[in-house]
Design a protein around this nucleic acid. Structure first.
Lengths: 337, 337
DNA sequence: ATGAAAGCGCTAACAG
DNA sequence: CTGTTAGCGCTTTCAT
């Protein structure tokens, strides 16, 4: 059972002074005599007094708590982002409530509600794959609670944003495949309702165009998880036997595809070259090590929360929003040649 | 700027009724007439009324929020645990505040304080590698806030616990190496101040003993991260050239060691067999796929939070604690033969 | 230098 | 069926 927690009232009673004096003494208000202050502080420590943040927050109408809505924590990219968020939050004295949507719209809505009810000072959001409706996010704006979208942003909701230049990264990846001599390059793509899906496809297309490759829609396979890759790669490669380059929308997909392709008896990179996107630790563990587009999750989280805290602490005009774009770079390893 | 949030007071004023009526109407209290109830609910929806959890929590002295203190989110094991925690929390109507200690004692202390101040209803803890002092955890007990330790438990603090049978898992791993004919088996160990470090070493030793292998302390290398493995493996293998089996305290270490050993020109598993611990996704991506001890992070998180919620919701006697032990199993892949 | 009192938003005992 | 009131723990005017 939750025991009675010591309050300033208790301290006041014991010391025979008023609660306002205790309150002031605890925060070293200059009005309070040094003796009283010390008395109060000593007793507080002795009684294991812990300020009640709920009461403070209610009074101040500020919680020093930030909400995060994220699709799935178990992806290295997202957990890096959270790590970045956490570290900065910690430095700046904020707490973080992390909610995962599990890529489910309904759950995202409930998450948003919970954060709203808890009066978080701001929210960081990466949109679920199954979200096509955005009113639950607009509620934050309605209440004047700043939002920053990161990675999976929401084109329909104006707000601050932190994104990777997905188009540019995809261009780099595809250009690299072209430059090493691939003739028929496939793209394993992320869902097109996500901006990242669109961007990565667009970069792929721009590179093809720039180097006078014809864009063949049948070479774009909607496939962005390890499971899907395991399911779809063999058939795809059989249908398109002369594909000699694959750019996948993320590392897990690239690696799983690579494993299937190898199992089919083809050599990577001699017969097929593969490029991923993300540069998680898997890229180094796969054999051969994966050429990939570096995507800095930790930094994305750090940037996003900095933007958010700035918004919270400085009353910037409500109509000024920034988008921070992180520039990815290509890391060439042995899965391409 | 945080805008004025609608309160029941606002609704009461507009409708010309008392705030208690509004409060009751909103929670469909039977006393209230259906018309008033509907009126209130409609207006509430129209005004985007969101209940203020702070006020409720202050009143009820219950926050429906659980705290988690975890070393590092970016490890697959821990993020799986969080995922399990989150899912159950969501089902049961709890919110979760996740704090990472980054393996730093100081930060763990601050995390604990923040959770205490926020009056969480309970906490889930996995201890940092650098923590040798546990008073910050005892504060929770002092305030009657239930704790559940998981994985990296704290022998000095009595409480509920969820652990993997590390000793048993390590035994299995080592026994397997013995059974396939390894003659000189090394252990790459986790820090011995952690129970998991002790347990895994103990299991290794028990297997050696049971099969009449002599325990050679110089075959135990304190090495439990990819970085350390990259740094130490080559030298260790040169010092102990006839080591033909390695049991590492986690997968990343096993895989990094494997890569170094391969780079040294030895074949895995023909010359050296390796077993990891954890069964993260890396185990499947490594080449050859890693034999490892399966450790169910998601389930550990789920079990831990169930235990915690049970404790919170049922006033069990303060002096009854359980320890839940998850039994790991060995998954044999191609890194051992 | 200290205290009294109001109020943050909500609930619940008590009264009608 | 509805309203009045007190109070959760804290801060902050306004007095003194």
């Amino acid at each position: 059972m939750k025991l009675h927690q010591v309050t300033i009232k208790d301290i006041a009673k014991i010391l025979g002074i008023s609660i306002s004096t205790v309150s002031r003494a605890l925060k070293s208000h200059p009005d309070i005599s040094i003796e009283t202050r010390n008395q109060v502080k000593e007793l507080a420590k002795k009684l294991n007094y812990e300020p009640n943040a709920l009461a403070m927050n209610l009074r101040r109408n500020k919680t020093n708590t930030l909400g995060v809505i994220i699709p799935e924590i178990v992806h290295h990219f997202f957990s890096s982002v959270i790590s970045g968020i956490e570290d900065i939050a910690y430095d700046r004295g904020y707490n973080v409530m992390v909610c995962q949507s599990n890529e489910l719209y309904d759950r995202e809505v409930i998450n948003a509600q919970a954060l709203l009810a808890n009066r978080v000072d701001g929210v960081l959001i990466s949109v679920s794959k199954t979200t096509f409706e955005f009113d639950h996010f607009r509620h934050f704006a309605n209440q004047g609670i700043p939002m920053v979208f990161f990675d999976r942003i929401c084109p329909d909701v104006i707000s601050d944003r932190v994104i990777t230049n997905d188009e540019g990264g995809a261009f780099l990846a595809t250009e690299h495949l072209i430059s090493i001599g691939c003739k028929k390059i496939a793209h394993f793509s992320a869902p097109q309702n996500l901006m990242i899906g669109q961007g990565r496809l667009a970069g792929y297309q721009r590179a093809l165009k720039q180097y006078q490759f014809e864009f063949d829609p049948s070479l774009v396979l909607q496939c962005d998880t390890r499971e899907l890759a395991i399911e779809k790669t063999e058939r795809f490669m059989n249908d398109n036997p002369d594909v000699d380059g694959v750019f996948a929308a993320n590392d897990s997909t690239a690696i799983a595809a690579m494993q299937i392709i190898q199992k089919m008896g083809k050599n990577v990179p001699d017969n097929v070259s593969l490029v991923g996107f993300g540069d998680g630790p898997n890229a180094l563990i796969a054999w051969p090590p994966l050429t990939t587009v570096e995507q800095k999750g930790y930094e994305m989280g750090a940037e996003a929360i900095k933007l958010l805290i700035h918004k919270i602490e400085n009353d910037t005009p409500t109509d000024s929003y920034q988008t921070k774009v992180l520039t990815p770079s290509l890391i060439i390893r042995e899965s391409t040649k």
